[in-house]
Design a protein around this nucleic acid. Sequence first.
DNA 1: TATGAATGAGGCTTCATTCAT
DNA 2: TATGAATGAAGCCTCATTCAT
Lengths: 199, 199, 199, 199
Amino acid sequence: MGKALENKFQKRSSLFDSAFHLFTTKGVENTSISDIARDANVGKGTFYLYFKSKQDLEAKLISHKASGLFEQAAEKLMTYPATLSLEDKVIVVVNFLLDQLIENPILLKFIYKNLSWGIFRNTIRSAEAEDSGDHISLDDLFGCSRDDFIEPDLMIYTIIEMASSTCYNVILWQEPVNIEVYRLFLDKNIRSIIRNHKR
Amino acid sequence: MGKALENKFQKRSSLFDSAFHLFTTKGVENTSISDIARDANVGKGTFYLYFKSKQDLEAKLISHKASGLFEQAAEKLMTYPATLSLEDKVIVVVNFLLDQLIENPILLKFIYKNLSWGIFRNTIRSAEAEDSGDHISLDDLFGCSRDDFIEPDLMIYTIIEMASSTCYNVILWQEPVNIEVYRLFLDKNIRSIIRNHKR
Amino acid sequence: MGKALENKFQKRSSLFDSAFHLFTTKGVENTSISDIARDANVGKGTFYLYFKSKQDLEAKLISHKASGLFEQAAEKLMTYPATLSLEDKVIVVVNFLLDQLIENPILLKFIYKNLSWGIFRNTIRSAEAEDSGDHISLDDLFGCSRDDFIEPDLMIYTIIEMASSTCYNVILWQEPVNIEVYRLFLDKNIRSIIRNHKR
Amino acid sequence: MGKALENKFQKRSSLFDSAFHLFTTKGVENTSISDIARDANVGKGTFYLYFKSKQDLEAKLISHKASGLFEQAAEKLMTYPATLSLEDKVIVVVNFLLDQLIENPILLKFIYKNLSWGIFRNTIRSAEAEDSGDHISLDDLFGCSRDDFIEPDLMIYTIIEMASSTCYNVILWQEPVNIEVYRLFLDKNIRSIIRNHKR
DNA sequence: TATGAATGAGGCTTCATTCAT
DNA sequence: TATGAATGAAGCCTCATTCAT
């Protein structure tokens, strides 16, 4: 039983890995379920035992990858004193994510358009996903100082959207400036946004 | 001759309209070239007289729509005194675009992820496109006060990315706040970004 | 398992039969893959499980049919005493093939231009084909008396080309003479060619 | 009028040239009427003013090219004394054709499968073609010594089929021997065939 | 649970042919 | 006579999905 279960997880994991590899290499469009099954050394029919469709797999894969990122960010934050101001906490998190994506541009390419409010909410806040168990909430991330801000959700939303949408070109193509120059302004802009939301 | 030429423009235009309608209704993915041709009352082969592929049409359509938007924004700006500060000019333009997209959320849905640096540069700055003739430059938009700013391109880039990526959910789903609330903070944030780039 | 394998052979065989029927009836050009699949009571996609393209099927079909013919010729030759002169052996083989094609003009029509040096060498001599296993060599056919002739390959080549290219019109259209008249001269001419190559 | 007629011939000729070029370069199959018209600098509709279809053009082109060859062969024969034996005349003609095809393997490739009894008869003997006027008859070629042979048509047929079908591989691929070796045997074999038909 | 052969709908694209100019 | 835009039938091929083993 344990072995069967292990085997099951292994197959699912293998499908995830193959899909990620193919999606980032050939593009989601040009990757067929056959391709994924073949690459995962799994029968074509087996795919349907784990995922309803390519879209289903794609969503779960994004969720999976994004979860991993945010988890790591949360862990990173733990290493800092809890007394850190929210402003500094956000900076720490954003810069950590930036570092991750700089190191792993393929991951960036994949979750680019999806690492935004929708996925953030679904990934971080919800517990409906099957990948549940290891979720963290927004409040976990930033502590319970929400009362100090006007529209704190909007604030986070704006920061995430701005950071994720701008970093894509900067990291991948050094456009319109390289990442080091960009980081200076990003930090400044984030701090401004936070201040604009202070009560 | 004149008639033939007129007919040609009409066909191309008809294909554009049908494609826009179907893309925004059913999604680009679920729209086939057959669908477009049928909707445009045009033979399937006729499509290929005007576009190389669905991707080709999509790119041209985005460019076409975005061009239109920016042109209108530029015209709008003309109605203001030229002595307006760049800060105010940007605010005027962004708010104009916001108004357009609020009025036309379908257009927003379509150009959403594309109204960014890449398309902005290609659409506004370049003249290589076949749809040329009616392009406007970044300098036309904001005057020649670039020297007053550090990394003015990055500044514009950041503003465009932030505004376009945040407004999507706000306009379409009133998430995480409604557009009127959002506008207050957007203006503040834009002004902060501009100030952060002042020399 | 045995059943599945049997089913597979049956499908392939069915596709072969349908293709042969349609190719000889409507011509290769005018036969679509859809036609073949429909005639074989097989899904269109199934075709591609067995053949890469129509050309692929065509080549395999020619090889298949020609192999069959030459095998039978070889078997026929076995029934004659081994002491037969090469001249007589060739006459026996050619006349056997002629008889086969007279009886089966549709087969003649199909393999007509292909039953020549290229296909002969590829079909008879090579073992690289997937349909391998039942190939016979030129030496098997004629014994090892090659040393008695100048350019024995050229001799066989000339005979095959002459016989195959002439018999087409004669068998199918009785042009310029009927087959019985033709046979008299063919035998004489073949014997002459063989003598012209004798050392 | 003369100019219009000249223009007409020029267009037809241009279409012929382009078709020959494309047919021998890309193959008949892969050449579309559009290709031919474009290559000939002629409107697509214009094609249909001169030919009914690609097949029509192909037949006329083969006829055209083969006619040219045989005409030249006849002219060549004129330079020999009329007292030459038929055997020698045939050898002269065949060797002349061989020389032409050696010099122009592209032409060989094109008319290969077609330079046989059917086209020979249609090209040489018939007068129904639109390219008429410059035809020569079999009798013109060989004089009126037909009575000296049994089945003279079959004799010529056999020689033509043998020579044309064998020379293809020999000239183009030097298979199974090179052309110089082949020529020795070809001449011998032709002479044998003629003798086999002598009364 | 795992497989992969079979399916056929439906996508893309080409091209012969027509016809208004 | 000459053109080439327009057409839509028809071909090729892919692929998500099913199902018997």
